[in-house]
Simulated scan of single mutants.
Amino acid sequence: MRTLHDLDTPFAVVDRSRVLANVARLRERLAPHNVVLRPHVKTAKSTEVAELIFDGRPGPITVSTLAEAEAFADKGFRDITYAVGITAQKLPRIRALQERGVVVTVLLDSVEQAEAVAGIPALIEVDCDGHRGGVSATGDELAQIGQVLTESGSLAGILLHAGESYFAYTPQELKAAAVNEADVARRAATTLRQAGLDVPTVSIGSTPTAHAFTTDIDLSGITEVRAGNYVFFDLVMAGIGVCTVDDLALSVVVTVIGHQTSRGQILTDGGWMATSRDRGTARQPIDQGYGLVAELDGTLIPDLLMSDASQEHGTLSLRPGSPYPLPNLPIGTRLRILPNHACATAAQHRQYTVISSQADLVVENVWERIQGW
């Protein structure tokens, strides 16, 4: 029987009980709205995590790479949305998946792309908040793209992503982002239908807005909701109030390797190659450095942060102004780092070491991650 004491550090740990709780929470949140949940697997990149969402069966998913699409297709997933703008050189791999009976729906926001994807189902990306890609919900370009896709039998619908919701810090702001996302989606669908075009899929979602869809929010006309980060959650999501630190299912185990007592620092073997350089909480009301620090059983150490990172060294120090003394953590002590951004931290690892619950140090399983593009 292996435990978290037995493995070489650093390594990524997933608490299966917390994943299940996070999955159940979103499922319950969306249940009154009669929409399909199409989880985004880009966070975990793990077929085992996706199977927890679908109770062991394949279901509709969103991917961010064709490597994900191919790996999930190998496991029986047959309804996949590739939610990154399509380019022509990727079409042969998509057609190869089609030949295997996999429906891969692509994403685009230009006439040029629409002309290239003839015969492949496509969603038009609509911009709802100026965050990234997409066309206006009411402009001529949307209908023009829709017409090109319709002529080749490729128009599958529209897709929106409320990227600015990641910078909403109150329940009111999150709810406003969720309402806006749904409203803009309906306007875009109306634009296409007024042009005589069918819009079978109206896809919206992000982890923040999906959790803000209270029963009084109108999701009529919305067919599906996407979210991905919610399976693990992270400090950014905790910082905007979508979850609490106790909901975080991913952490990285590191070992104390040195001390710089005069500088109030503790060194570990977990640098940015283990935790990533993501500093997503720096723009939030509470800056969590490169991550919070917990004992191996998951108990948070008060005010101790991963305050700096080089490639293979992590630096731990107290939060500025902390009333607590620097803890006595001898060389060899194992700790857990709770990440700012679960997607970025998970991407540093080839596999997850799985435990059944936060305080259970027994290794229950190992889940491989999908890597590459």
Results as ranks from 00 to 15, higher is better:
residue 282 A to T: 08
residue 349 H to R: 06
residue 22 N to S: 11
residue 141 E to D: 13
residue 46 S to P: 00
residue 332 G to K: 01
residue 35 V to K: 12
residue 53 I to V: 15
residue 31 A to S: 15
residue 347 A to H: 09
residue 136 S to F: 11
residue 157 G to Y: 07
residue 301 I to L: 00
residue 351 Q to Y: 14
residue 116 A to F: 02
residue 309 A to S: 14
residue 337 I to N: 12
residue 347 A to R: 06
residue 32 P to V: 12
residue 61 I to G: 06
residue 107 L to G: 03
residue 222 I to V: 12
residue 236 V to P: 07
residue 228 G to P: 12
residue 362 V to K: 08
residue 280 G to A: 07
residue 217 I to P: 02
residue 30 L to G: 07
residue 240 I to C: 01
residue 275 T to G: 10
residue 111 V to T: 15
residue 9 T to A: 12
residue 118 A to R: 08
residue 104 V to G: 00
residue 92 P to G: 11
residue 98 Q to T: 12
residue 280 G to D: 04
residue 38 R to F: 06
residue 126 V to S: 06
residue 329 L to Y: 08
residue 287 D to E: 11
residue 357 S to G: 15
residue 70 E to D: 01
residue 125 E to Y: 03
residue 221 G to I: 12
residue 369 R to I: 08
residue 87 T to V: 09
residue 208 P to Q: 08
residue 86 I to E: 06
residue 216 D to C: 10
residue 235 L to S: 06
residue 311 Q to P: 14
residue 217 I to H: 03
residue 55 D to V: 00
residue 79 D to M: 05
residue 24 A to H: 10
residue 156 A to Y: 04
residue 161 H to K: 09
residue 28 E to T: 14
residue 247 D to V: 09
residue 117 V to L: 07
residue 243 C to R: 02
residue 322 S to A: 07
residue 264 G to I: 00
residue 200 P to K: 13
residue 332 G to L: 02
residue 30 L to A: 10
residue 183 D to C: 01
residue 162 A to F: 07
residue 211 H to N: 14
residue 243 C to E: 00
residue 82 Y to R: 02
residue 91 L to N: 03
residue 49 V to I: 10
residue 109 D to F: 15
residue 128 C to M: 11
residue 371 Q to D: 04
residue 323 P to V: 03
residue 162 A to M: 01
residue 131 H to T: 03
